[in-house]
């Protein structure tokens, strides 16, 4: 977990880690690029983000200490608290997911997990390094919502699903986190083993928009 190959001399700047790692949808990079149509429907993988799973009662002392590190814990379904480079997603009444840039991970010299673990202290709950659990697909463009609507039964219309909302739901029959980070931008977080399937599913859904319109 936190005690990864951080401080070994050969890994001073994380070069060993960067060379060794491979993202769950790395093999789809070319497919994503070919399927994307600028401004209409674009997809790319944002790999290797640091993610920490937190379980703590947010109204307790431990919750307050953890919130001080993460920049706050969201209170209800859909809420996302953003603070600096950290985004904290609500997954359950006492379950949260902190997403941070890759440099926050101990293997690249960061101390996010360490700080969260220390903040939790001996309070009830847990802080787990989930950086390798999920990958992120960024789906953007004017047709991004229509692509998602093919595999997600939630109401994704802007009047119901506002930017800055994240929910845990099903996309293409698999469980994933859907985070609307901008008006036309969605971050889809499937578990690593589902990344290939969901990546291809989304590319399939984008196909009609990348073709010339039939009059």
């Amino acid at each position: 977990m936190v005690e990864t190959a951080a401080a070994t001399p050969s890994n001073q700047n994380g070069s060993v880690v960067r060379a060794a790692r491979r993202s769950p949808a790395a093999h789809l990079a070319g497919t994503f690029e070919a399927a994307s149509l600028a401004g209409v429907a674009e997809i790319k993988e944002i790999p290797f983000q640091t993610m920490a799973g937190i379980r703590v009662q947010r109204d307790g002392d431990a919750g307050a200490r953890v919130a001080a590190v993460s920049g706050g814990l969201p209170a209800a379904c859909g809420e996302v608290v953003q603070n600096g480079g950290l985004s904290t997603l609500w997954l359950g009444p006492a379950e949260f997911l902190v997403i941070a840039p890759e440099n926050a991970h101990a293997s690249l010299g960061g101390d996010l997990l360490q700080a969260l673990t220390e903040a939790l202290g001996d309070g009830q709950g847990q802080v787990v390094d989930l950086s390798a659990n999920r990958t992120i697909f960024e789906l953007s463009g004017t047709k991004a919502r229509e692509v998602l609507e093919k595999g997600c039964s939630l109401d994704l219309h802007p009047r119901a699903f506002k930017a800055g909302t994240a929910v845990s739901t099903e996309i293409g029959h698999i469980p994933a986190i859907l985070w609307k980070s901008g008006e036309d931008t969605f971050q889809v977080l499937p578990r690593a083993s589902f990344a290939d399937f969901l990546g291809r599913w989304l590319v399939d859904g984008m196909r009609e928009f990348a073709s010339p319109e039939v009059p």
Binding site: C77, G92, T169, P175
Partner: peptide
């Protein structure tokens, strides 16, 4: 149980 959502 809401297994895909809040797991409660």
């Amino acid at each position: 149980v809401h297994s895909t959502g809040c797991r409660q």
